[in-house]
Simulated assay, not measured.
Amino acid sequence: MKMVNFAEFGGPDVLRLIDAEKPHAGPGRVRIAVRAAGVNPVDWRIREGQVIGAHPTTLPAGLGLDAAGVVDQVGEGVTGIAVGDRVFGEGGNTYAEFAVLTAWARMPEGLSFEEAAGYPSVVETALRVIRQVGVRPGQTLLVSGAAGGVGSAVLQIARVRGIAVIGTASAANQDYLRGLGATATTYGEGWVERVRRLGRVDAALDLAGSGVIRELVELTGDPGRVVSIADLGAPELGVRFSGTAGSVPQALAEAARLITRGDLHIPVAKSYPLSEAAAAHADSQAGHTRGRRVIIP
């Protein structure tokens, strides 16, 4: 099979397309023929060697956590799923034609593989940081970098839960944020005052890692009311960095429920073939994404 891997830490140019043996589904696992793999910021952080503590990496290594596809091998002890079922979930080395998943759920009706691949890590992260930041119905959550995949999920989940959201994004994404139920404003010079004019901020999330932790603490008045998934220096300012996943099966079940009810939709910004994984990483690192990027084997 074809898969993407890297033999040294570095920029997107270290990624290469190779031939490899198909992985096998061990106990409690399933193997899928990958139809689409989600591109997450953690993927390029792993490629650069930024998060070795959380994601130990032995080189050469593959990449990719999220995928959607068709089950073609079921491991020992797995029940409720069969060869031929369409699933989405998390596993390892999903930038490949075949991958093993450690957590999965059946794809909701009407969802494409490209769309489904964009949900697993994004929804798990959104549910986790909303819980960790402690925001409650009736309160206001500020989301810095709100137009990407996690931001798109946070805005929609917050809306369902009765939490008001102020979202910052580029000028081009203001209408997108409003369409997801947020009060939108741009980042850049003067953004703190623009947020102040919009009202009280009870809690804040840093999803873009754009150096705004001090300002988020200032706006909330308490570093304990701020959570970052993108700024590794956040703990130096007393802010929690959230980088360890919670229950992925529960998150997938919640994602399927929200999608089926029409309460959650994350658009696919762009799809790339396996051979263009480096371009997908470069675009992801550049930011300004509306929704998700996916790789198609």
Rank of each mutant, 00 (worst) to 15 (best):
I166R: 00
I166D: 00
G167E: 08
G167C: 02
T168N: 13
A169C: 02
A169Q: 02
A169F: 00
A169M: 00
S170E: 10
S170D: 04
A171Q: 15
A172P: 12
N173M: 07
N173P: 14
Q174A: 11
Q174I: 07
Q174W: 11
Q174D: 05
Q174L: 15
Q174M: 15
D175Q: 15
D175L: 15
D175K: 15
Y176G: 08
L177Q: 00
R178G: 09
G179C: 08
G179M: 04
G179R: 03
G179D: 03
L180I: 12
L180M: 15
G181E: 05
G181R: 11
A182D: 07
A182N: 06
A184D: 09
A184Y: 06
T186A: 08
Y187P: 01
Y187I: 01
G188I: 14
W191A: 06
V192G: 00
V192D: 04
E193H: 12
E193M: 06
R194T: 12
R194K: 13
R194G: 09
R194Q: 08
V195N: 14
R197N: 13
R197I: 03
R197K: 14
G199Q: 02
G199F: 01
G199S: 10
R200G: 10
V201C: 03
D202H: 15
A203S: 02
A204K: 04
A204L: 07
A204C: 04
L205A: 02
L205D: 00
D206G: 10
D206M: 09
D206Y: 10
L207N: 01
A208R: 12
A208G: 13
A208D: 15
A208E: 13
